[in-house]
Amino acid sequence: MVKYCQSCNTQKAFMVRPKTGNLICQNCFFQAFEDEIHHTIISTQMFKPGEKIAIAASGGKDSTVLVHVITLLNKKYNYGLHLYLLSIDEGIKGYRDDSLETVKQNQITYDLELKILSYKELFNWSMDEVVAQIGLNNNCTYCGVFRRQSLDRGAIQLGVDKIITGHNADDMAETFLMNLLRGDIFRLPKSTAIITGDDGDNGIATLPRCKPFKYTYEKEIVMYAHYKKLIYFSTECTYSPNAFRGHVRELIKNLEAIRPSAVIDLIHSCEQLDAPNQNQKLPQKQLCQKCNLLSSNKICKACTLLESLNQGRAKQILQIQE
């Protein structure tokens, strides 16, 4: 049986959208995918016309799609942005050196200036040397901390106003859950913040980092790359098998298989922690009018459930009599 797109009702559907469960055809998907990212950018006032933006590019799927979509939207909607590619060479043989080739290809395709900074030149340590020194425990912590700072330094050298990264909805949900599992209550409410580093805390403002893919599912990014035939690098980092994130990732993928909205639900929960909706009030404690025991409504949940069960029983008896 041919299933049709639930957006245009004329074309054959080719995928199920994880966020909504809707069936969609290829053209409507490309349109919706790009429109939703545009909407995220506009509704959060992510950019101002004339700004210089560094796209953090690893050559992986997320940043490859990010370069493609931002270049496209910048032209289509006249954002007036000056775009640059910024890559970090962590110094991991057979991994990063290969993925940087993909970034160089992107540079040619989209005609953007590319800056590559290496851990070796910035810190005098490559990740190969770090792992030789400390082994395969906590090495991702070193790499993450160094990358963060490398991106800041690269952005300053390029003289840009902001950095954008390809973090997607699944990444956001992972970070939130990781902070929850670690009991990191200070980081928890900001786990899924779409713009970070611009708060000027203590008079120290760093370069803002923005995440245009905050609400974009990983599945859709991979689908988009696949059908647009974008070339990206996909090899697991040689040094990441013990990372805590990997286990949380597994957990979220399993949750998503059971209930695809779980990813966006986690992001929603985090946003509510950060800025709770003041209009929502907890129900008042009271006594149930039927059983006189604790309830948050006039009639307690147990009485309501019993009521519906008893009604069903009555209906069944009627059916038998009929």
Binding site: G166, E218, R249
Partner: peptide
């Protein structure tokens, strides 16, 4: 079969 698991 397309993996979504690697890299960013």
């Amino acid at each position: 079969f397309i993996s979504t698991l690697h890299g960013g």
